[in-house]
Structure formats: structure tokens, C-alpha cells
């Protein structure tokens, strides 16, 4: 396959940035999107041009590093996958592909396609944990049976990889799906109950402070989320938030 790439290049956070056009050839359908980017970068290095910076690590859809906006969609045209799991068989010879970073005020660009998602970490610092000491003086794991359904729902909420596609997909750049996933994971477990009120208030406050937008329930986040994090989590967060506000 031969492809025409339109890639966002930006020197650093201060630079205005803009698109550059590159052609790549010899792309095979079995290659992943990031392997296609490797080919591009290899060509650029050989021509003495700085390669395109992009985040990636595991290349199997679990670390949440990769974060490309491809033809206007976070993680590209396929569903329920990350950028690194996108394969070139989804494209055809001669296609033009527009490649940008995820866009959101709370995710400033560091360079080219690399963004700063530390706002997500700070939301987690604010309450994304259960306050239990790691000393080992805990009770036997099976002394707290948990209904399978709750355990499974908690698990599904916890499979969020923190990639930020939900934010990039949302016209308000809201981080509700991400935040609600963490709140839900703990809200569904007895271990998380004690701090439930404090947790939801602190995490939502931090989310607002980071400059993410409001949630207007468009559901675009769910459509683009590689892990299919359910919108029910947002409803749960709202309930938790309401009850926390009433009681505090």
C-alpha cells in the first residue's frame, strides 16, 4: 500500500504547530498502525529529518500510552481498540490519513503527537485509592465474599487504561468517563464504602480544577473508549456525588 499522511508537527508546547505531508510506501495490511509510523520515521531519519514523536510502549492495548487522533477519531476508525491495535488492513492503497494528537485544554501538547496527561494522575491522587496500609496486617482475602456481579462490574470499570480517548472524543473535553470508572470500581466493593463520599467529592473537584469540561451526556466517550467503559459508571458517579453532597 501507498499512503498519504498528513501529520501534526509541533516543536514544543509554545510552538503553534501545523500539518506536514509525507508519503509512505510498502505498507502491508498485517502491520499495525504504529509499525506504519515506524516506517515513516525510519524514512525520515534516513533523510535527516527529525522523526515524529508519539507515545507508545506496550503495543498491545493495555498500557494506555498510545494516543493518536486518526482521521478525526481517537484511536482511529476501528472500535474497542487502541491506536497500537489498529491494523493497516483497515486502510486501502492511496488513502490519505490525517494524524493528530488528542486535543483538549487539559492535555497540552508536549511535542508533535505527544501530550501531557498528568491531569489524569492528579485526579487519581485526589482519591483514587482505598486507605489501607500496605503492611500486610490485613484480613484473609476470602473473609469478605463479594457478589460475582458486583466483582465483575467493579473489574470492568477498573479496566480503564487512562488513555484519554474519552476526553478527546467529547465536544466538552469532559473527563467524566475516566473519573467515573475509578469511582465506580471502589463504589461497587465493600472495601471502598468507608471513604466513598470523600472520594467522589475530591476526585470531581480535582477534575474540575484541571479544566476538563462538563458532561452533557452525549455518549461520544463510550463510542470511542477502547475498553468499552460503560456509561452506567457516569450515572453511578452522579448518584454517589449527589448522596455525598447531601450528607456532607
Amino acid at each position: 500500500m501507498k499512503l498519504k499522511l498528513k501529520v501534526w508537527r509541533q516543536e514544543d508546547a509554545q510552538d503553534k504547530g501545523g500539518f506536514q505531508n509525507y508519503d509512505v510506501d510498502g505498507i502491508d495490511g498485517d502491520m499495525s498502525f504504529l509499525e506504519m509510523m515506524d516506517v515513516l520515521n525510519n524514512n525520515l531519519v534516513n533523510e535527516g529529518i527529525d522523526p515524529v514523536e508519539f507515545d507508545h510502549d506496550c503495543r498491545e492495548g493495555i498500557c494506555g500510552s498510545c494516543s493518536l487522533q486518526i482521521n478525526g477519531e481517537p484511536h482511529g476508525p476501528d472500535r474497542r481498540i487502541t491506536t497500537c491495535q489498529l491494523h493497516m488492513r483497515k486502510f486501502k492503497d492511496g488513502d490519505e490519513i490525517v494524524i493528530e494528537p488528542f486535543r483538549a485544554t487539559a492535555f497540552p501538547v508536549i511535542k508533535d503527537l505527544v501530550i501531557d496527561r498528568s491531569a489524569f494522575d492528579r485526579i487519581q491522587h485526589a482519591g483514587g485509592y482505598i486507605s489501607v496500609n500496605t503492611s500486610g496486617n490485613t484480613q484473609d482475602a476470602n473473609s469478605i465474599p463479594i457478589e460475582k456481579q458486583d466483582a465483575d462490574d467493579s473489574f470492568y470499570a477498573a479496566t480503564c487504561i487512562g488513555c484519554g480517548a474519552c476526553v478527546a472524543a467529547c465536544k466538552n473535553a469532559s473527563a467524566m468517563l475516566f473519573t467515573s470508572a475509578k469511582v465506580s470500581q471502589f463504589a461497587l466493593l465493600p472495601q471502598g464504602e468507608v471513604e466513598a463520599h470523600e472520594r467522589v467529592i475530591n476526585m470531581v473537584n480535582q477534575m474540575d480544577a484541571e479544566g476538563f469540561g462538563n458532561c452533557t451526556n452525549t455518549g461520544a466517550c463510550y463510542v470511542e473508549c477502547p475498553k468499552g467503559i460503560s456509561l452506567e459508571n457516569i450515572a453511578r458517579l452522579n448518584r454517589e456525588y449527589l448522596s455525598a453532597s447531601v450528607f456532607s
Binding site: I130, V132, G136, T138, A141, P145, Q185, L189
Partner: peptide, 20 residues
């Protein structure tokens, strides 16, 4: 002890229908 610790932290391990 690792398993006890992780469960206390809210790690959602797979469970059987009986909740264990």
C-alpha cells in the same frame, strides 16, 4: 499475604458465584 493485601486495596480478582 499478597492476595489479602490486594483484595483490601480493592483489586477486583475473579470470583466464583458464591462470592469467593
Amino acid at each position: 499475604n499478597i492476595i489479602d493485601q490486594c483484595v483490601a486495596q480493592g483489586v477486583p480478582f475473579a470470583r466464583e458465584y458464591g462470592g469467593l
